[in-house]
């Protein structure tokens, strides 16, 4: 059943018990992103050390409301980027973006995306792709703001 492919147990686990949730200090940038078609929202903060691609992601904290896909994707994001460099984090973002835009045709690399591979089934539902990307777009925006 395709529904089970979409709602992998990993996704539901992250949804029910989101990682690193809550807004914390310190942070250098805070952004608020919405999905205007459905009303899902995320407020996301980043705390970086250093500058450029070598800057280290010391914290990503967030407050969000939305569907299981958007909530779980943001939770997975934090696992993937915390204590990585910005360059590494953006590589993961790129890999996740390619997976989500692949219409289910992209084979995800577990070494890069870890729990993120569970979203392969979501990519078959184009209307839900933006749910999965909401937190990632916010993260990218927040990092860009720190750097500017």
């Amino acid at each position: 059943m395709r529904l089970d492919q979409m709602y992998q147990e990993i996704i539901l686990d992250h949804y029910r018990n989101p990682h690193h949730r809550g807004l914390r200090e310190p942070f250098e940038a805070e952004v608020h992103h919405v999905n205007p078609t459905c009303g899902d929202e995320v407020t996301l903060r980043v705390h970086l050390e250093g500058a450029g691609p070598e800057a280290k992601v010391l914290d990503v904290s967030y407050d969000a409301q939305g569907c299981s896909i958007s909530q779980a994707a943001t939770s997975v994001l934090t696992d993937l980027v915390l204590n990585k460099t910005v360059g590494e984090a953006f590589e993961k973002h790129q890999a996740f973006l390619e997976l989500m835009q692949g219409r289910g045709q992209v084979e995800p690399d577990e070494d890069v995306l870890e729990d993120g591979i569970a979203f392969a089934g979501v990519a078959k539902y184009p209307a839900r792709v933006k749910c999965a990307l909401l937190g990632w777009m916010a993260f990218k925006d927040a990092v860009a703001r720190v750097e500017s």
């Binding site: 459905c38 009303g39 569907c67 896909i69 839900r128």
Partner: peptide
């Protein structure tokens, strides 16, 4: 969440709308 409800309904062939239906202040 309504989005998730809509997904299961769609899986049953039941096509409904989910979201704020262009009435965000009402929601």
């Amino acid at each position: 969440h309504p989005h998730d409800i809509g997904q299961v309904l769609d899986d049953q062939g039941v096509e409904v709308r989910v979201g704020h239906h262009c009435a965000w202040p009402l929601h």
